Simulated scan of single mutants.
Amino acid sequence: MNLIEVYVYEVTKRLSVKTRDDVALELRSTIEDMLPENFTEQDVKDALTKLGNPAVLAASYRDTPMYLIGPNLYDIYILTMKRVIPWAILVTIFIHIFENVMFFSGKEAILSVVIHSIGIIIANVINVLIQVFFWFTIVFAFVERVGISNAELPHKKICNKWTPEDLKYAKIIPKKKAISKGDLLFSFIWTAVWAIAYFYADHLVGVYRSSDGNGLQFIMPIFNQDTLMSYWPIIAIFIVLELGLIIYKWKAAQWTMKLVSANAIIHLLSAITFIVIASNPHLLNEALIPYLAELFETSSSAVASSLVWIWRLIVASCVVTIIIEIYESYRKARLR
């Protein structure tokens, strides 16, 4: 293990992207100046010990002074916020979706309820983020000044006991290989959306029309719910697999070949299942084609032919998207 490179990474990962390269170059030069000509690993450890904890050193490189929360707590403050905020968002979304499903009366059009709920969810998420930011900042600012002595802080203990040996447990994750929290959040929301749309397709996925200025009204479902529900055990398995894959990505934090393999297997099987379901001749609602033929003043055969091509295009697009996603994950895992 190259202790110098790991130490430089541990410092620069806490800085803004625009300053990382310059600081890395300066820090490497500083470390090299501290080392003898034919240095040993112990010489490197001694030099790094003199430089101190990477978190504290990184604080000295920041352009913006941290008046409210000092450098001893700033990194653990940011780490805490990064861990709490995604869960706060997920819990807020989950609670709101659960309330809407449990108290849905069936009198309103699902699409109208969804659009209204999205607005409420966004407002609630913003409110939760403000509350989390405010209270965590207050707590850390209080601890920084009068709450707990520095000797009692777990983070301070870690800082005091830091040695170059701690670098052995650090992981250098290249930016292009990293799995962002945004990707994980999107995967979770997407899984929840398609799962709800699948099991409630007869109330959610359908033809909507506005009549008498009363907003959108649900006219009829596009899919045959009985046909969809005949596959529900397989779909339930894929939901569990997708959630497990999200947890696996969260723990790995970067693309690895094992993760790529698991991701590819799950997505390829899901693509095959999607094609099988899409090929079922009883998937579409029987009343849909006559209704569309009357609506567009054309023949049922023309509508049926158009729906076949549209459905093939959707299926092909989904398959191509899955293949591209698998290839991109493989390419990222191969990066060094």
Rank of each mutant, 00 (worst) to 15 (best):
His116Gln: 14
Lys168Leu: 05
Tyr169Glu: 11
Ile120Lys: 10
Lys161Asn: 13
Ile265Tyr: 09
Lys177Trp: 04
Ala262Tyr: 11
Met102Thr: 15
Gln254Ala: 09
Val260Thr: 13
Ile324Asp: 01
Met102His: 15
Glu165Arg: 11
Ile277Gly: 04
Phe223Lys: 10
Tyr208Glu: 07
Leu269Arg: 05
Gly244His: 04
Asn280Trp: 05
Glu37Leu: 12
Asp166Thr: 12
Tyr248Gln: 06
Val11Leu: 02
Thr273Ser: 02
Val240Tyr: 00
Lys332Gln: 13
Ser211Arg: 10
Gln225His: 05
Ala197Glu: 07
Tyr77Trp: 05
Val125Ile: 10
Ile31His: 04
Arg14Glu: 05
Met102Val: 15
Trp194Ser: 10
Asn263Trp: 11
Asn224Tyr: 04
Phe94Leu: 14
Glu286Ser: 14
Ala271Met: 04
Leu184Ser: 12
Leu48Tyr: 02
Gln217Asp: 07
Pro36Phe: 07
Trp162Phe: 06
Ile69Cys: 00
Ile95Tyr: 05
Trp311Thr: 09
Ser112Cys: 07
Ser149Thr: 15
Ala123Cys: 07
Ile110Asp: 01
Ser16Leu: 12
Ile189Asn: 05
Ile266Phe: 02
Met66Leu: 12
Ile324Met: 02
Lys50His: 07
Arg83Trp: 08
Ile93Trp: 05
Asn2Gln: 15
Val6Ile: 07
Thr64Gln: 01
Thr30Tyr: 05
Pro164Phe: 07
Ala88Asn: 11
Ile126Val: 13
Ala271Ser: 02
Leu307Asp: 01
Phe39Thr: 13
Ile324Glu: 03
Thr30Ala: 08
Tyr200Thr: 14
Met257Ile: 14
Ile266Met: 01
Ala264His: 11
Arg14Phe: 01
Arg209Trp: 09
Arg334Trp: 11
Pro164Trp: 06
Pro54Asn: 06
Leu268Asp: 11
Leu15Tyr: 00
Ala316Leu: 07
Pro281Ala: 08
Ala141Trp: 01
Ile289Cys: 04
Phe296Cys: 09
Gln254Leu: 06
Pro281Ser: 08
Arg62Ala: 02
Leu307Phe: 00
Asn100Tyr: 13
Met1Ile: 15
Met229Ala: 12
Tyr200Met: 06
Asp33Gly: 10
Ser230Cys: 10
Tyr327Asn: 13
Asp21Asn: 12
Asp166Cys: 08
Ala316Val: 12
Glu325Gly: 15
Lys258Cys: 13
Glu242Leu: 02
Asp226Gly: 10
Arg145Gln: 03
Val101Lys: 12
Ile289Val: 15
Ala59Asp: 04
Leu288Cys: 03
Tyr61Asn: 03
Leu313Tyr: 08
Thr321Phe: 04
Val132Trp: 00
Ile173Cys: 03
Ile196Lys: 03
Ile222Asp: 04
Ile93Arg: 11
Gly52Cys: 05
Asn124Gly: 06
Asp21Lys: 13
Ile246Arg: 06
Ala192Asp: 08
Leu185Arg: 12
Leu269Trp: 01
Leu307Ala: 01
Ala236Thr: 14
